[in-house]
């Protein structure tokens, strides 16, 4: 077992983990943050996307020990403390950018990463950026619309 410490959604956490523990397992099973999902085992679906030190990462393709000392943000950290949805989350609701909700946390984390590096993306840029997020319900149409609307709302 190895001791690791990190900040998750603003809160410091310290824990003992086996080195083979994935970051996503640590988040879901140790911290109970079950908003981050696992949809594949070949690092392609993006349902597990989180932010590690401000950068988008697949938490299923990273060991918890690799996140030692890092700042992690998950879907649970995206709304205001009072529960008010963030701009991107609200845009997803306004534009019906989700159906079953399983890919949604990863989509929101990707959208946030995109808008941080490109505040005014075109439809084509949004689609290209979401290459690593699979959704089986929406056909992506309303996800693209939601991201575009969030960009406009953030001005």
């Amino acid at each position: 077992m190895v001791e690791i410490s990190m900040t998750v959604n603003g809160k410091p956490v310290t824990a003992q983990v086996e080195p083979r523990t994935l970051l996503v397992t640590f988040l879901r099973e140790h911290l109970g943050l079950t908003g981050t999902h696992v949809g594949c085992d070949t690092s392609q679906c993006g349902a597990c996307n989180v932010h590690v030190n401000g950068m988008l990462a697949k938490s299923c393709t990273m060991l918890a020990v690799e996140a030692d000392g890092a700042e992690i943000v998950t879907i649970e950290g995206m709304a205001a403390p009072d529960g008010t949805l963030g701009v991107i989350q609200q845009a997803f609701q306004d534009h019906h950018g989700l159906q079953c909700g399983f890919c949604t946390p990863g989509m929101v984390m990707s959208a946030a990463a995109l808008l941080r590096e490109n505040p005014d993306p075109s439809e084509e840029e949004i689609r290209a950026f979401l290459e690593g997020n699979l959704c089986r319900c929406t056909g992506y149409h309303n996800i693209v619309k939601a991201v575009r609307a969030a960009a406009e709302a953030m001005g």
């Binding site: 690092s43 993006g46 988008l56 697949k58 393709t61 990707s110 950026f129 290459e131 690593g132």
Partner: peptide, 9 residues
């Protein structure tokens, strides 16, 4: 290469 999350790591 890959996708944005893969490229970040």
């Amino acid at each position: 290469i890959g996708d944005p999350a893969v490229r970040n790591r």
